[in-house]
């Protein structure tokens, strides 16, 4: 893994730098081209734009889940395009927290086991007592501490997303990528989940990048990136 120091720009530390990015899926005519995009440490960013404009694709590119055809992506000081698959996975599980619209909890695991999942699916992470304690503390902080042994299907939508957020926060990532995290939630839970994400970003000086269609919530973000500009 080739590590580089985070780039400084005008006093701010850049967490994500994208240059001359071109992406195309193997099938279909989807194309995403981003000449340049920089996101600083600690920023809260909303990706907005019409469906199919490439918001989720860019999240996947930033996380190293997919690779561009051309261009460079540097995330948290690491040039992902230069890493192999194992390197990108190890990077992702340690330094990127992912939250999905559909929660993506494993139905056969309890709340606690779902939160601990990242430590069980990658040997570069070690599950020990401290991690368990942190998982329990996180669960209590988001008010699901009394449901640690409940299975995912027995939880409400809001509870499921809070479990998913705990799973993303447990490795204490420097970058949070959330793909419509409030898309399936009622207004009360929307606010609650966002509060947790924003609170974590603020406390840990982490960067939060969220794909959202909810324009009512855009005002909470420090920066908004409209994807229409990439298709202009």
């Amino acid at each position: 893994m080739r590590l580089a120091l985070p780039t400084r720009l005008g006093g701010a530390v850049l967490v994500i730098t994208i240059r001359d990015l071109e992406f195309r899926y193997a099938e279909g005519d989807f194309f995403l081209g981003i000449p340049e995009l920089r996101i600083e440490r600690g920023q809260t960013v909303a990706f907005i734009g019409p469906s199919g404009s490439g918001k989720t694709t860019l999240l996947n590119l930033i996380a190293g889940i997919v690779l561009p055809r051309a261009g460079r992506i540097t995330t948290d000081g690491v040039e992902l395009t230069a890493l192999d698959d194992t390197g990108r996975r190890n990077f992702r599980i340690r330094r990127v927290g992912l939250v999905f619209q559909e929660f993506e909890l494993l139905e056969y695991l309890s709340v606690l086991d779902n939160i601990l999942l990242p430590y069980r699916i990658n040997r570069s992470m070690r599950l020990d007592g401290a991690v368990r304690e942190r998982a329990v503390r996180l669960a209590h902080e988001v008010d699901i501490g009394d449901k640690l042994h409940r299975y995912a299907p027995k939880l409400s939508q809001g509870e499921k997303q809070r479990v998913a957020v705990c799973r993303a926060l447990l490795p204490e990532p420097g970058l949070l990528l959330a793909d419509e995290p409030t898309g399936n939630l009622d207004p009360h839970n929307k606010g609650r989940v966002l509060d947790i994400l924003f609170d974590y970003a603020a406390r840990a000086d982490a960067t939060l990048v969220t794909v959202t269609h909810d324009h009512d919530l855009i005002g909470r973000y420090g920066r908004v990136v409209d994807f229409r500009e990439f298709h202009a």
């Binding site: 996947n60 996380a63 889940i65 698959d85 194992t86 996975r89 190890n90 990077f91 992702r92 599980i93 340690r94 990127v96 992912l98 999905f100 993506e104 494993l106 999942l117 990242p118 069980r120 699916i121 990658n122 040997r123 570069s124 799973r167 993303a168």
Partner: peptide, 20 residues
């Protein structure tokens, strides 16, 4: 498949997922 995709997305290693 979706469960496996989730594990891949959050950074599960090939070996660990295959071992599960």
């Amino acid at each position: 498949r979706r469960e496996i995709e989730t594990m891949v997305k959050i950074g599960g290693s090939r070996g660990s997922i295959a071992w599960v």
